[in-house]
């Protein structure tokens, strides 16, 4: 399997705090990989480093064979990496369809002439864009909401829409920051199925998550962080039975609860 994302010796400090310290990660094409760890472990910081939001003090991030350093945020979508946000960042006063169309904006490129004039070719391209966006929405089970303003949707659907919008950018790697936060167990289960269906479209997924049951269910490979460092890595069987992990992340009493899930 091809390595889609490779991270070597990644470090980042804020003032005196070493938020991320010498982290290495690998994400292979077609996998669902998770980063877990208690609050303050440095997960979001890793995410922000991967997505170019912060620049690393040390280390290397290689995505799809190319280093990520110095890339502008809008380039990530062109290169096939997209992320969602822990707090929703939808275009609130736009419809579901419009949100998804914005995800497709960089896929369809107009010439300067087409930007100014409504040529027949442009109209066909627009038509195709709309059809493709609507189809994606339908495939993801949100067909009924196509023209609903997205701030009127229930929270769970808004989270889902953020995923659909991210998919519209046609990513190779989809990065999810705490996708289960704020979802009830039923919605969390739906989310797991949803993530599988995304993976089945051939998209690689990197998840940061708190919700252990979700991680257990979906992950091919898990990295556990604590205090900015990598504590342990492996498949869920390996990680969930690791003494250090049980102690640091779940606490001694919690081990049974997780394995009982």
């Amino acid at each position: 399997m091809k390595e889609l994302l490779t991270v070597k010796n990644l470090s980042k400090s804020f003032g005196g705090i070493r938020a991320v310290s010498d982290i290495g990660l690998k994400v292979e094409e077609g996998q669902i990989v998770s980063i877990i760890g208690p609050n303050g472990a440095g997960k979001t910081t890793v995410f922000n480093l991967l997505s170019g939001f912060y620049s690393a003090d040390e280390g290397e991030i290689i995505f799809d064979g190319k280093p990520v350093a110095g890339r502008r945020a809008y380039d990530f979508a062109h290169n096939g990496m997209v992320r969602t946000f822990q707090n929703l960042r939808l275009f609130k006063s736009m419809s579901v369809l419009e949100n998804v169309l914005i995800g497709r904006q960089h896929v369809t490129r107009y010439t300067p002439l087409q930007m100014m004039f409504n040529t027949p070719k442009k109209r066909r391209m627009e038509q195709k864009d709309r059809a493709a966006a609507a189809e994606l929405v339908a495939e993801m089970g949100m067909k009924d909401m196509l023209n609903v303003r997205c701030d009127g949707l229930p929270y769970g659907q808004q989270k889902k829409l953020e995923l659909v919008r991210a998919l519209a950018t046609q990513p190779k790697l989809l990065m999810l920051d705490e996708p289960a936060a704020g979802l009830n167990p039923q919605e969390s289960q739906e989310l797991a199925d949803f993530i599988f269906s995304i993976r089945d479209r051939g998209i690689t997924i990197l998840v940061i998550e708190h919700d252990m049951s979700l991680i257990n269910k979906i992950s091919d490979y898990i990295y556990v962080m604590n205090h900015g460092e990598l504590l342990c890595e492996g498949t869920s069987d390996v990680v969930m039975n690791d003494e250090q992990v049980i102690e640091a992340y779940i606490g001694k009493g919690g081990a049974k609860r997780v394995s009982g899930n």
Binding site: A73, V82, K92, M94, L101, I102, Q105
Partner: peptide, 21 residues
């Protein structure tokens, strides 16, 4: 398309940037 991009940036510039705008 550009007009929609303008509205998107006005509503949430960070998310827009992440959509490749």
């Amino acid at each position: 398309k550009l007009g929609v991009a303008m509205r998107a940036v006005a509503q949430n510039s960070m998310a827009s940037e992440w959509m490749g705008i």
